[in-house]
Design a protein around this nucleic acid. Sequence first.
DNA 1: ACCTGAACACCGTTCAAGT
DNA 2: ACCTGAACACCGTTCAAGT
Lengths: 218, 218
Amino acid sequence: MATAKSKRPKGLDPDQVAQIALEIADRDGLDALTMRGLAERLGIGTMTLYGYFPNKEKLLDAAVDAAVAGREPPTPSGDWNEQLRSVVLWAREGLLEHPSIVELRTRRPVLRPDALRFSELIVGILREAGFPAAEAAPAFRLLFTYTLGFAALSPATGTESDRAEAQRVLATLPAAHFPALSEMRDEASAAMGGEEVFRYGLDRIIDGLEAQLSRLAS
Amino acid sequence: MATAKSKRPKGLDPDQVAQIALEIADRDGLDALTMRGLAERLGIGTMTLYGYFPNKEKLLDAAVDAAVAGREPPTPSGDWNEQLRSVVLWAREGLLEHPSIVELRTRRPVLRPDALRFSELIVGILREAGFPAAEAAPAFRLLFTYTLGFAALSPATGTESDRAEAQRVLATLPAAHFPALSEMRDEASAAMGGEEVFRYGLDRIIDGLEAQLSRLAS
DNA sequence: ACCTGAACACCGTTCAAGT
DNA sequence: ACCTGAACACCGTTCAAGT
């Protein structure tokens, strides 16, 4: 995949560089991954990095490849809705392992072919289940948006202080203007993230797709 | 809401400053909103801005308030699912009007009380419909994630070139490895964004919530 | 009291130069 | 051929100073 084009620098190869970059970004956040910092970490001059990748964007593309590499999807089993569920949960696992990929996707599209395997799997299952192409596409988009959106918007990655701050705001909300929220502060703050909350939503979506499929059949 | 604390500078008041900041961010993107650029636009020294807001984060909070200010929610009518639908579409309108708020939310939580009105409305409708607190919370989260996630991840805001690039990648995908996607390139690229695609997903979610509600009733 | 320029500690990347 | 420091055009913000 990632062979240096113009220059072939010393011991390191581009994939190793991308792997280290991914580790930094996953551990400390995407903003913490700087060309200067990465070069220092590798013990090379900043500009030497530009022998491996023409710019930071290409480096990030390679980091996406590194994150996706070797992740085998689940072997299909059960009904279409069970297959859908397991592929979505498989994708979610990958996103939780590599939060920086989520962060990157919120800033720009990520169009690495390997990253489109999720799309391919989901669309395949939906078509097989009986959705016509015109519906499989937006139905995929729903699952994609929910899966990535949840990873991006819910405080799994978010700092502990973010969560505390959210609870503080919830607690100080004037009950007169926010009667429904005030009545269920605990449930509201519990529902900000986590596996159970994710699965609740996923199950509703699958219920909805099932309803649509019966509608199509009749 | 936003009264200067330490200093009371000349003609401008903080709300006006926040309004201009919002306009810049909505038009040119959140990154294009810089303290230096905003100050220049206002014809004041950069550091004078710090008389209005202690730091950029507070300025962005005020910009959120400006975006939310005066947006009246739809008057409830119809069944709970119709109410849900119209509140979600109302929120989506606001997000499309103010793409920078979406961008901001993907970078950090946005906990302005006024921005929680969406939550309050949705949760209220769900409770009224018959969802217990323990389910209304994750059900809200599903609607929130989908609505904001769609705005953040679909190329409504995204540049035209992003869309073209995505179509190019789709077109060059090897059919052997991506049979399902290759069979429906047109549908796949059409489903990347837009009102119809959003509504398709929203309708599936509402179908799923209806299914769950009948399940709860029986 | 109100306003602000200089300076600090950062970015990604170009350019010209080192070996 | 391979590597890199200096420099450029940016950031947000602190600090000390102007009026």
